[in-house]
Nucleic acid binder design. Structure first.
Lengths: 148, 148
DNA sequence: TGTGAAAAGTTAAGAGA
DNA sequence: TCTCTTAACTTTTCACA
């Protein structure tokens, strides 16, 4: 990928609503050249979409936790992600190389909701869980990709 | 927060570049009413920004890992996040209630870079680390906030 | 909080190098 | 792959309910 494309991606990571005109000013390209390049980045799957970033606290979800998930029965077919997909509190789901099989990141309003959520996770996927509560978030979503 | 605001936030989580005109059509509001509401959501800090979402693989960072961080010397002043802030590979930094003090999510190009990164983390913050490699990501960034 | 209207700015698509 | 052009659309601001 070209340097110009990298710069466009970097700018759009910082401000996903930046206009093609401003992207052009920042890169020295014409508006339509920017437009074409961004469209190509989208088509190639480098840019997969655009999203508002919201404050979970402001939306009433101040409590985050990381949950390690281990299947009870290792002989079960491993369809844990599918079994958990409908649970909207689970923001991220990683399959990992560790003592656990999966690590989930969840957000809820308060401790009672976390208790309830854990019960739903355990019964939906037939797993045991180990939960680590997040006390504070020095930063999040800083796009390591920005370093590219 | 009102139901209309929730719907606007939900729509902008899904498509952060949606026009005010289209947001108006989706909510039944006039363009300028949408504009005012979105501006207020931004001012109140509910919407904190907009970002392109990119594929880390397409950017050449296919290897993710979760790193548990524990200070060597518990009597040290705890400024681990500040000491790590300059390391751009660290996408998320959580302070947690567990045997470890922090959990980091990082992205790198290949195993060698992970080795190098761990050395930099340990020496920058005077910590020990325990690393869990991510094998696959069934989903990520699904905005639990969408459930609001 | 909302509306509608008008000016200023942006996007999208095509022709041409 | 770039620029330029032009029509269609979107944003922004304002007066007013």
């Amino acid at each position: 990928m070209e340097d110009l494309d990298r710069r466009l991606v970097g700018l759009l990571l910082q401000d996903g609503r930046m206009s093609y005109t401003d992207l052009g000013k920042a890169t020295g390209l014409s508006t339509s050249a920017v437009h074409q390049r961004v469209r190509r980045l989208e088509e190639r799957g480098v840019i997969t979409g655009y999203a508002a970033t919201v404050s979970p606290e402001a939306l009433g979800l101040p409590l985050s936790a990381l949950i390690s998930v281990t299947p009870f029965d290792p002989s079960d077919p491993d369809d844990v992600p599918q079994r958990l997909a409908h649970i909207t509190e689970i923001e991220d789901c990683y399959s990992v190389a560790g003592v656990e099989s999966y690590i989930l990141k969840v957000r809820v309003a308060m401790p009672g909701n976390l208790e309830d959520l854990l019960a739903r996770i355990r019964s939906a996927a037939n797993v045991s869980t180990r939960t680590t509560v997040v006390l504070s978030t020095p930063w999040e979503g800083r796009s390591a990709s920005a370093s590219v």
